[in-house]
Every structure is written in C-alpha cells, then in structure tokens.
Amino acid sequence: MAEKLENKFGKIRTVEEAMTHINDGTSIMIAGFCGVGSSYRLVQEIIKKGVKNLTLISVDAGDPEVGPDYIIRGEQVKKLITSHIGATPRTGELLNEGKMDVEFSPQGTLSERIRAGGVGIPAFLTDVGLGTIIEEGKQKVTLNGKEYLLETALRADVAIILAEKADEFGNLIYNKTARGLNPHMARAADVTIVDAREIVPLGAIDPEHVVTPGAYVDIIVQGGGEWTWEWQLKK
C-alpha cells in the first residue's frame, strides 16, 4: 500500500512529527465516547512525552485506563471540559482534591459548542440547563419571549482524531459509534491530527462517503494499537 502513496501534500507524517504540536499548556480535543473513537497510540505518546498543564476537551473522561483517563490520572491535565466523569473515579478525586479544574457542559451542549467552534459560530442560544447549576456565570438572553443561555463555542490548539480510513488529502471516514465527536473536533482545532487505521491514495474513497473533507486535516499518522475495554476483562 505504502508505495502507491505519493504524500503529495506532505500530510502523512510520523507520530514523532505529529507530537511536536503537543507541549506543556496545549489545549487538546480528544474524540471518543467511553474511549471508543479515541486514538490509542497518540494518547500513549502524550503520556510518554509527559507534557503538563494541558486543557483537555472530551465528551467524557473515558473508561478506567482507556482514552483520556490515562492522561488525567497522570495529572497532566490542568483543566478538563467535559460532560461526564462518572466512569473514572480518579477524575472525580482529582477534582475534589483541587488538582484539576473541571468545566461541565451537558453532552448535547458540549457537542454543539464544539460544532460551533468548527463552523465559525462564536456562540449560540439553548434552553438546556435553564434552572440548573449550568446557568452559573452565563449570560441569559430573551428571544421571542423565551429565555435561553448563551453558550460559547469551543476550539483547541490540537484535535486528535481517530478515522477508519484517510486518503492522503485527509478525506476521512469513520466506523460506527467510533464517529462520536470526531467529525466536529476535526474542524475545531488549529492543528488536526488524524490517526487512521488505513491510509489510501486519492480517489480510493468515494466522494459520497467522505464524512470529513480533507481540507480540515493537517497531519495523518498510522498509530496502530488498540484499547482493552472493561467488558473484555470481565469475560
């Protein structure tokens, strides 16, 4: 396969090259839901590099020792923006110990904040969270006689994306529930790094099947490796 790839756009890089974009203080979006859709290799590399004071944006904190949980339990994260940390007790402990700041956003609102960040919309109105602690510190807007919360868009320095397939321009397709927030995070970062299971030549993906157009993608690596999920260990 490799000999067919011309790497005409220079987007196909080594994992080491990709990792130069992740340093102390970098804000990172990591896609994945309970770890499904999170790049195994790039998470391992973030741990190995030992970068600190990260801002992490992720729908959840992963599952124990899967996905973002790995980075969080190593105390590499200064701030986590997420909707759920209930599956990863260590995350909650770090929050209670004051070692990490956690900003909670309802899952649909969080998804939309990331979507907004990727489509050039700075903020939007929603009634989700009205009358709850989510209101705290947020501007309320009345529109057509109804009250809404103003929710701001999210962007990051780097997005870490897991794709089933990428062509060398970075056109992406995903697999089942590993899609998650991958297509939205791919648009919402200054540098979008894709870990692709397979890299194919231009034209090998039917344009009708492309989910993320290659224009959004900066770096493509083939990370390899796989998570072990809790349900596998229980057997």
């Binding site: 209930g86 909650g92 402990e93 309802p106 899952q107 649909g108 609102t109």
Partner: peptide, 15 residues
C-alpha cells in the same frame, strides 16, 4: 460526593 457529570441527562430531560 464524587461528581459524575450530567452526561446527556439535561438535554434528554429538557427536550
């Protein structure tokens, strides 16, 4: 206690 986060519950309950 440990705060689990609301996940999708707020969105689901509201809409």
């Amino acid at each position: 206690g440990l705060i689990p986060g609301m996940g999708g519950a707020m969105d689901l309950a509201r809409h």
